[in-house]
Amino acid sequence: MLATDNAVIPYAVGVDIGCRMALSVFALPPKFLSQRVQELQKLLLDNTRFGNRTGFDRGKKLGHEVLESDTFQAVPFLRNKQATAAEQIGTSGSGNHFVEFGVVDITDPTNEMGLAVGQYVGLLSHSGSRGLGASVANHYTKLAMENCQLPNEAKHLAWLGLDSELGQEYWAAMTLAGDFASACHHQIHHRLAKALGERPLAKVENHHNFAWKERMADGREVIVHRKGATPAGRGVLGIIPGSMTAPGFIVRGRGVAESLGSASHGAGRLMSRTRAKQELGEAQVRQYLRDHDVVLQGGGVDEAPMAYKDIHAVMQSQQELVDVLGSFTPKIVRMDGA
């Protein structure tokens, strides 16, 4: 993450603008997951869509106010993006994006979610702004590099001033992409909650790959870019995921100024995708998942749990940044792929 003065760096926001985690907690016991494995697998297959394939059939599409945003017409670059956004709303990307059922274990009675200490069924999703965000990122990163020419080794730091027309355009487009990413998660959780016949007791949502206007301790307003980091301001709730076989953590930020009020957005990769494909076999990964009692639909060896860092070590290294309120342990996972 980094902070700038009245300027935004599109590359420092990232390609998948507004990528986020969203958690719903249901008043169901953990044994529900082991008793309904096949049923829950079918719910995930029926109510999620991944990757670049078509979205939901016309009769199953859900509308959302974000699709009617004036920004689609106000920003010239976005005028032909509305149809694609309407096609992809409520869907998830490929790569490390997922929707999964698991066990929520609340350990802190002061969790601010109104949940008693104990275990629940949870639904966790990770995805971003799909084709809309990617097109915005690529377009304005190119324009920033053309309008703010830096040495080659620093070209990705090219910025757009927020007092410029291009800067204002990007900020509006970035904000819309973030709102679109949030709308996708809301639809995913709405569909699955309805299919379960349950209303969530609590929800938590936090995002990364975004820029925020915030004030420093000395009162200066800055633009905080969090690419691969998530807000951890004082009292801010979030989820920091591990891997398919490791818990994620529900956290409350401490607002540490030295970290710009931020924390990691996940465990992070131990192996590159290429290395994982070279060193890990599908049979090995499937056995590893079985050993950890995890059912996976889709996915590939590049997303194997062994390709990720130890989340416990990651959380230990940022214990000054967040308080842990509970955990989420994946059990039934849906990702892109057959």
Rank of each mutant, 00 (worst) to 15 (best):
Y120T: 01
H185N: 05
A211W: 05
R215W: 09
D163I: 00
K203T: 15
A202T: 09
C148L: 03
F180T: 03
E153V: 12
A195W: 02
M216K: 09
E205W: 14
E112H: 15
E112F: 08
Y120D: 05
Q119L: 02
R199C: 05
K227R: 03
D105Q: 13
E221M: 12
K227D: 03
H225N: 01
K142S: 13
H207A: 07
K142Q: 12
T141R: 00
W212K: 01
G161C: 04
S182Y: 13
G114N: 10
E153F: 15
E165K: 01
H185R: 00
F180H: 05
H190M: 02
W212F: 08
G131R: 02
A154D: 13
W159C: 04
S182Q: 15
V222N: 04
H126F: 04
V117A: 07
G133L: 00
E198L: 09
G128F: 01
N138D: 14
H156N: 13
A177R: 00
G122I: 07
L162T: 06
E146H: 10
A193M: 02
G167Q: 02
K194P: 09
T107K: 11
V117W: 09
H139W: 08
L162P: 05
I188G: 08
V136A: 11
I223N: 06
G161D: 11
C148I: 06
V224L: 00
E165R: 01
L176G: 07
D218L: 04
A177E: 00
D179Y: 11
I188N: 13
L192V: 14
R191M: 03
A177Y: 01
A217Q: 12
L123D: 14
T107L: 04
T110P: 01
A202E: 07
L123G: 05
H139G: 02
M113A: 09
R130C: 12
A154P: 04
L196I: 03
R191Y: 10
H208E: 00
K194T: 15
H208N: 01
A193G: 15
G161Y: 11
A116H: 09
W212G: 01
E169N: 14
L124Y: 12
E165C: 02
L162S: 08
C184V: 09
A181V: 08
D179G: 12
I223C: 03
N209V: 01
A158D: 14
L196T: 07
K155A: 15
S182H: 13
N152Q: 13
M145C: 12
H189G: 03
A173M: 03
H126N: 06
E198A: 15
R226C: 02
G197Q: 04
H185F: 11
A173V: 09
A202P: 12
N209K: 00
E214W: 06
M145G: 09
L150Q: 07
C184Q: 05
R220G: 09
K203I: 11
H207N: 10
E221N: 09
H190S: 13
G197S: 06
I106D: 11
S164V: 07
G102F: 14
L123V: 05
T175G: 15
A202D: 08
A217D: 13
H185G: 09
H189R: 00
E169I: 01
G128C: 02
Y140A: 00
W212H: 07
Q119C: 11
Q168G: 03
A217Y: 07
F180Y: 13
E112N: 15
W212M: 01
H225W: 00
D105W: 05
C148G: 09
